Simulated assay, not measured.
Amino acid sequence: MATILCYGDSLTWGSVPNGGRYPKHLRWPTILNELLGKHHQVINFGLPGRTTIWNDPFLEGRNGLSYLQAALETFGPVDILIIMLGTNDLKRYFNVGAYEAAKGVEKLIEKSKMPNNHGFPHPRCVVIAPPNILSPTGAMAENFDGAIEKSQHFHHYYQDIAVHNKCLFLNAAGILQPSTIDGVHLDTQANAQLAQAILTLIKDKL
């Protein structure tokens, strides 16, 4: 039995475009668990607004680096750690781009390899470059001002980080795009597509 920890933001948590949360069976970590079979455990540890390493002045507890070690100990031993973060890093008040987001992911990878008090082995890391941001609508349009172009560079920098750190890599933008309803979050089809792509990537590694 493998334990797979999905460490992400609202795209992992299961945000419905323009508000709400999908029921469990429509979120990609749950779909992945169904595809893998009940003998494996896929844990959804997504949190809306989570960043790689940045402290959000308007949302408490969103710094991904601050909570990763606790998550790995809480759910450990973790066999595979799936990291899909960076979309929220592109909010305009952080004033960073895809390169900095990728470097933030690298800090998370490094954190996952740090010794722990329980003798847990280090998890195998899967780095997922988030999907490109489309034209954000509503309240998100202001938050993600300038983020559309920045997000188009996710795959390049994330792949470099993944290769350098010997991680598995998936470019989400190559298989899906966000809902046109809000330009950021995933519809049900995209959740299913992502789960299937991750299955293909990891099934031989379990």
Rank of each mutant, 00 (worst) to 15 (best):
Lys111Ile: 12
Gly119Ala: 01
Gly97Pro: 13
Val127Cys: 01
Ser135Ala: 09
Ile133Pro: 14
Ala192Asn: 07
Ile83Asn: 00
Pro178His: 12
Leu199Asp: 04
His164Cys: 06
Leu168Asn: 04
Lys150Cys: 09
Asp145Lys: 14
Phe94Pro: 14
Ala139Met: 13
Ala195Gln: 11
Ala190Asn: 06
Thr137Ser: 12
Leu72Met: 13
Asn116Leu: 09
Phe154Ala: 01
Ala173Tyr: 09
Ile128Tyr: 02
Asp89Trp: 05
Ala197Arg: 08
Ala98Ser: 15
Lys113Ala: 00
Phe169Thr: 10
Val127Thr: 11
His153Ser: 13
Lys107Ala: 14
Ser135Cys: 07
Arg124Thr: 14
Ala71Met: 12
Cys125Pro: 13
Leu168Trp: 12
Met114Trp: 00
Asn88His: 01
Ala162Asn: 10
Leu199His: 15
Ala173Gln: 07
Asn143Ser: 11
Glu73Thr: 06
Phe94Leu: 02
Asp79Ile: 08
Asp182Arg: 02
Ser151Leu: 08
Asn132Thr: 04
Leu134Tyr: 03
Ile128Asn: 04
Pro130Leu: 04
Arg92Thr: 08
Leu81Asn: 00
Phe144Cys: 03
Leu186Val: 07
Pro130Cys: 05
Asn165Trp: 03
Ala147Thr: 10
Met84Thr: 11
Phe169Glu: 09
Pro136His: 11
Gln196Ile: 03
Asn191Gln: 15
Glu73Arg: 03
Ile82Gly: 03
His164Ser: 14
Ala197Cys: 07
Glu100Ala: 05
Gln196Thr: 15
Val127Pro: 15
Arg124Asn: 11
Leu85Gly: 02
Gln189Met: 02
Asp187Trp: 11
Val127Phe: 08
Asp79Trp: 08
Tyr99Gly: 00
Ile181Val: 15
Thr188Gly: 00
Gly86Met: 09
Ala197Asp: 11
Ser135Trp: 13
Cys167Pro: 15
Ala190Glu: 14
Gly183Tyr: 14
Val163Asn: 04
Gln152Ile: 01
Pro121Ile: 05
Lys113Pro: 11
Gly76Lys: 07
Leu108Cys: 10
Gly183Pro: 15
Tyr93Ala: 00
His156Thr: 14
Ile133Arg: 01
Thr87Pro: 08
Ser112Glu: 09
Glu73Asp: 03
Val127Lys: 09
Phe120Ser: 03
Leu168Ser: 02
His156Val: 15
Asn171Trp: 07
His122Thr: 15
Ala129Leu: 08
Arg124Pro: 08
Ser112Asp: 10
Asn191Glu: 15
Cys125Arg: 06
Ser179Ile: 05
Phe144Pro: 12
